[in-house]
Simulated assay, not measured.
Amino acid sequence: MKTYAIGDIQGCLEPLKMLMKKIEHDTPDARYLFAGDLVNRGPHSLETLRFVRDMGEMAVSVLGNHDLHLLAIAAGARKKERLGSLQAIFDAPDGDELIDWLRRRPLAYAESGMLLVHAGVLPQWTVEQTLMLAKEVESVLQGPDWMVFMQEMYGDQPATWQDDLTGTDRLRCIVNGLTRLRFCSEDGEMEFDAKEGLSEAPAGFIPWFDVKARQTKNDTIIFGHWSALGLLLRPDLMALDTGCVWGRQLTAVRLDDRALYQVDCQGLCTPDVF
């Protein structure tokens, strides 16, 4: 069975269906890995959640920052204002079921020697450590006190990982690394303000994947999140957020040979939440 990794969908269901039709012409029994941000900004967040959920074991999706935003609204940690296509989830008869399904998605997933995350991996972390740290947060999100954690999740501190971090600081740092990271310093200090491309790196910061001492430099990391970066394929990286919701492309890569599949999203997906 061949597996394909797909970048951020953000409620752009029609481009996703078009992309999968292309893929399934070549691979009728394809399996899919989604790099997170299934929802928000695009027009069909409810339908996208249902579509991916109904794929069952044929799909794995890690949590992205926009997915966590939806969970935070559900937990009362964010106001229900300017919800755009997220409003339909709260109005749907199966809305609670979808929220419950979403909070049980992983933050990191590994197979075939590759690691899937939404945004990045802090340079101090190995693949094994990343998976273990992700599970620490997953156990909270899937537990009875998940709403309490969502009230405490947001914040930029601590900006640097330390193995002896505890409590909310530890969990927040893990979430930020896996779902918000773009730039960091050589010693792993995270920077959250810059959202543009590589030429806009703040002074003293570099893309997380170019840190010389990165523990995962000999591994292949699949991620999305960074639409201004666009498609970047290297032996150690697959950056797959190609800005579908901004009218660019939705991208998939077949993992065994890195065959590239794309659809043009112009006119098919218009952002309604910024």
Rank of each mutant, 00 (worst) to 15 (best):
I221T: 11
W246C: 07
A239K: 10
L237V: 14
A252E: 04
G243N: 04
D219H: 14
T242K: 05
T242S: 12
W246P: 01
M238H: 05
L237H: 07
W246E: 06
K217L: 03
R258Q: 09
F223W: 00
D257W: 08
W226I: 01
A228G: 00
D241V: 06
N218A: 09
L232K: 10
L240Q: 12
V245K: 01
H225Y: 03
F223I: 00
M238T: 03
L232G: 01
A228I: 00
R234K: 15
I222N: 00
L250I: 04
R248L: 14
V245G: 06
R248T: 09
G230E: 11
P235A: 09
G230K: 05
K217S: 13
W246N: 07
T251V: 02
A228C: 03
L240M: 09
D219A: 14
R254E: 15
T251N: 02
G243Y: 04
V253F: 13
G247E: 13
P235I: 10
L233W: 08
L240P: 06
I222V: 13
H225R: 02
L250T: 04
Q249R: 12
L250F: 07
T242G: 08
Q249C: 07
R258L: 08
I221D: 07
L237Q: 12
L250R: 01
L255K: 08
L229T: 14
A239C: 12
L255H: 11
W226Q: 02
D256T: 13
T220A: 04
L240F: 13
F223S: 00
V253N: 08
Q249I: 03
D241Q: 07
L233E: 15
D256M: 12
R234I: 05
L233F: 11
G243L: 07
L231N: 02
D257P: 04
P235F: 13
G224Q: 01
L231Y: 14
F223N: 00
A259P: 00
R254S: 09
W246M: 09
I221S: 07
L231Q: 07
R258T: 04
L232D: 14
G243D: 06
A228T: 03
W246H: 11
L229I: 14
G243E: 06
I221F: 08
S227E: 12
F223L: 10
L240E: 13
D257I: 06
V253S: 05
Q249M: 08
L232P: 00
T242M: 11
R258S: 05
F223C: 06
L237M: 14
V253Y: 12
L255Y: 13
D257R: 06
I221P: 04
A259G: 04
A259E: 13
L229R: 08
W246D: 09
W246G: 03
W226N: 01
P235E: 15
W246A: 08
D256R: 10
R258A: 04
A252Y: 05
M238R: 10
R258F: 07
L231D: 05
L233M: 15
K217R: 15
L240S: 10
D236P: 06
V245F: 10
L233P: 03
N218L: 09
L231A: 03
D241Y: 02
P235T: 11
F223D: 00
R254N: 06
D256I: 13
R254Y: 13
W226S: 02
L240K: 08
L237P: 02
N218E: 15
K217N: 12
L233Y: 10
G230W: 11
A239W: 13
